[in-house]
Amino acid sequence: MSAATTSDSSTSAIAQLSVSARLVAGKGEAKRLRRSGQVPAVAYGKTLAATPIAVAPKEVINILKSEHGKNTVIRVQVAGSERLVMIRDYSYHPVRRDLEHVDFVEVKLDEEIDVDIPLFTTGKAEGVVKGGILRQVYRTLPVRCRPDRIPLKIEVDVTSLELNGHISTQQLQLAEGVSVRLPAEQTLVSVVAPEKDRSAEEAAAAAPGAAGAAPAAAAGGKAAPAAKDAKAAAPAKDAKKK
């Protein structure tokens, strides 16, 4: 059976991000911030009311380009106290592609969160060697775990996967405290026959009279004499009545 394992999901270093309070809202303030080298942002959470802040775009982009990317846990000073947050959303200018706004959500190290983790395959499937095609249904997996257990990626070894075989969620071997939010039977990766082979099989199965054609012909060969006998029997019956 093919197995999947997460990469190292041990406690990762917490990133630091400098933020400043933003007391005035509106487009005018946003433009002023961008001219000064910052962008508007907001931080919120279960125990944190939506708080307007400003951040340096370069620092945010460096976090997004880091190993964990958007799943990085970040330490910030917000609303007079130190808190842990993660990037929930961000937007770029449609033309210049400059970072324009960032949303941060508060997280707790002892509370599970939902994140998306990249799924990669390793090895060459037996079914592919025999002419099949590897089909990866999911490129990322919806995962639930604590912030300090977020894996960088999930890898699945497909080497022993045969033609028409598949790997489902229940076959994943995940680190403790990490779960995938998909049905146990959900197919993640499979090896299928080439399109032309499948088309030929489907066409053959869908052909009119394809199923049971030979038995029908044989039965028809025997049915003819029976029909003849039945036809001859009818006048005899009528004759008896007379």
Results as ranks from 00 to 15, higher is better:
residue 93 H to K: 02
residue 63 I to P: 01
residue 86 M to R: 10
residue 83 R to C: 05
residue 76 V to G: 05
residue 93 H to G: 03
residue 87 I to F: 03
residue 53 I to S: 00
residue 39 V to D: 01
residue 65 K to V: 01
residue 65 K to P: 05
residue 50 A to T: 11
residue 100 E to Y: 09
residue 52 P to V: 09
residue 36 S to K: 13
residue 48 L to Q: 03
residue 92 Y to F: 15
residue 51 T to M: 01
residue 39 V to E: 03
residue 85 V to T: 03
residue 97 R to F: 15
residue 43 A to W: 13
residue 78 V to G: 05
residue 59 E to P: 07
residue 95 V to F: 14
residue 90 Y to C: 05
residue 100 E to T: 14
residue 46 K to H: 14
residue 90 Y to D: 04
residue 81 S to L: 07
residue 99 L to P: 03
residue 43 A to C: 14
residue 66 S to A: 06
residue 79 A to W: 04
residue 71 N to H: 08
residue 100 E to I: 15
residue 94 P to A: 05
residue 52 P to M: 09
residue 45 G to H: 08
residue 87 I to W: 02
residue 61 I to F: 00
residue 70 K to T: 05
residue 101 H to C: 13
residue 42 V to W: 00
residue 99 L to G: 02
residue 79 A to D: 11
residue 60 V to L: 05
residue 95 V to G: 06
residue 92 Y to H: 13
residue 90 Y to L: 14
residue 87 I to L: 03
residue 52 P to S: 09
residue 54 A to N: 07
residue 79 A to I: 06
residue 48 L to I: 10
residue 63 I to Q: 01
residue 100 E to F: 13
residue 86 M to G: 09
residue 90 Y to W: 15
residue 66 S to N: 04
residue 47 T to E: 13
residue 55 V to R: 07
residue 90 Y to N: 08
residue 64 L to K: 00
residue 38 Q to E: 11
residue 43 A to T: 14
residue 61 I to K: 00
residue 79 A to V: 06
residue 38 Q to F: 15
residue 98 D to S: 14
residue 74 I to L: 04
